[in-house]
C-alpha cells in the first residue's frame, strides 16, 4: 500500500484552477520532494492531502483513508508542518507541546513533552515563550510538535524557508533518520540541494504535475543539452547569445556561463561561431543540472497567478 495515492485532484478558487488534475503516489518510507515555483499549487495539494481542503474533483487515499470522507482519521495519523509558524507565540515551548500532546491524547503528557524537549535540546528553555525563538528554533519546535504523536506520514510545507544552512543540514539529517524508521515524508521546497536529498521528486507548475521521478530521471527526461562557456567578458557573450534560435537559457554560474537548449542541433549551430566571435572564449559540453531543468519548466508554463 502506498502512503499517498491520489489521482485527478482539482481545486479551484474562484475562476483560477490552482490544482489541475494532479496525480501522485508516494510509497511507504519514501522521501519525496515537492517542487515548483511560487503559487504553483504545492501548498494547496498538501492541504488537500491532510484534509484541510476538499478537492473539487479527484479521489485518493492517504494512509489508506479516503481524503474526502476520512479526514478526521487522516488528521490523527499525519503530521503536518505549515509553511508559516503556526504554534502559539504567547505560550511557552513547554505549554505548546503539552497542548499538542493533549490534543492527540498522548499519555502521560509529561513524559511525551519531556522526551520531546530532551530530543530537541530545549529542556532548559521550556519556559521560554515560543514567540521569542529564532527562525531555526521555531522550525525545530514545529517539527518536534508534529512528530510527537508518531505519525506515519509527514507533510512538510517549505520547512526550511529562511533557515540557515547548518540548521537546514541538521533538519535534513533528522528527516532521513525518521524515514529510515519507516516514516513517509512529502516535503515541498525551493532549494535544489534539498531536492537532491530526496528519493524522488515531483515537479508541479501552475497546478499541473510536469515531471516526477528520481533527480537523474527528471534531468534525463527533460532532454536538455547544456554547454559551458569559459573566458573573458562573458557578459557580452551572454548578451549576444540571448534570443538566438536554439538558445533557451543563458545563465552565469560563477566564472562560467551555462547555455541550455532543448534542441541539440539548433543549440550547436547557435554556438558554432562563438569561439571565433569572442576571443579567448572556450565552449565545452556540460552537465545539465536540476536547476536548468526547472528554469526550463518555469519559462515553458504560463503564469496563472497574475
Amino acid at each position: 500500500m502506498n502512503a499517498i495515492d491520489v489521482h485527478g485532484l482539482v481545486k479551484r478558487f474562484g475562476d483560477k484552477t490552482v490544482v489541475d488534475h494532479v496525480t501522485m503516489s508516494v510509497a511507504e518510507g519514501e522521501i519525496v520532494g515537492f517542487l515548483g515555483p511560487n503559487g504553483s499549487g504545492k501548498t494547496t495539494t498538501i492541504r488537500i492531502m491532510c484534509g484541510l481542503l476538499t478537492p473539487d474533483e479527484g479521489e485518493g487515499t492517504v494512509l489508506g483513508f479516503n481524503i474526502r470522507t476520512d479526514s478526521l482519521r487522516i488528521k490523527r495519523e499525519v503530521g503536518y508542518m505549515t509553511q508559516k509558524f503556526s504554534f502559539y507565540e504567547d505560550l511557552t515551548i513547554g505549554e505548546n507541546l503539552e497542548f499538542v500532546a493533549r490534543l492527540y491524547r498522548l499519555k502521560p503528557v509529561e513524559e511525551h513533552v519531556a522526551s520531546t524537549l530532551e530530543d530537541l535540546g530545549l529542556t532548559s528553555r521550556r519556559n521560554q515563550l515560543a514567540g521569542t525563538l529564532s527562525g531555526g528554533w521555531k522550525q525545530r519546535l514545529a517539527l518536534a510538535a508534529c512528530i510527537m504523536h508518531k505519525p506515519k506520514l509527514l507533510l512538510l510545507d517549505e520547512p526550511t524557508a529562511g533557515v540557515d544552512p547548518k540548521a537546514r543540514r541538521e533538519f535534513w539529517d533528522e528527516i532521513h533518520r525518521l524515514a529510515s524508521g519507516g516514516l513517509t515524508v512529502l516535503v515541498s521546497t525551493h532549494y535544489m540541494d534539498e531536492a537532491e536529498r530526496c528519493h524522488r521528486i515531483s515537479y508541479i507548475s501552475y497546478g499541473k504535475m510536469l515531471a516526477t521521478g528520481t533527480v537523474a530521471e527528471v534531468v534525463r527526461n527533460a532532454g536538455l543539452t547544456t554547454f559551458v562557456l569559459q573566458g573573458p567578458r562573458l557578459d557580452q557573450v551572454a548578451e549576444a547569445l540571448q534570443g538566438r534560435p536554439g538558445v533557451d537559457q543563458v545563465a552565469p554560474f560563477g566564472a562560467t556561463l551555462h547555455v541550455v537548449g532543448s534542441d541539440k542541433k539548433k543549440l550547436e549551430a547557435a554556438l558554432a561561431d562563438v569561439e571565433k566571435e569572442h576571443k579567448g572564449v572556450k565552449v565545452s559540453p556540460g552537465e545539465t543540472s536540476l536547476e536548468d531543468v526547472f528554469i526550463q519548466f518555469m519559462s515553458g508554463s504560463k503564469d496563472n497567478m497574475a
Binding site: 484541510l52 488528521k75 499525519v78 505549515t82 508559516k84 504554534f87 490534543l103
Partner: peptide, 14 residues
C-alpha cells in the same frame, strides 16, 4: 490572523 488556525484544524479536534 495569527496563522494558528491552520494548525488547529490540521490536528484532531472537532
Amino acid at each position: 490572523e495569527r496563522g494558528t488556525m491552520e494548525n488547529l484544524l490540521a490536528m484532531p479536534s472537532s
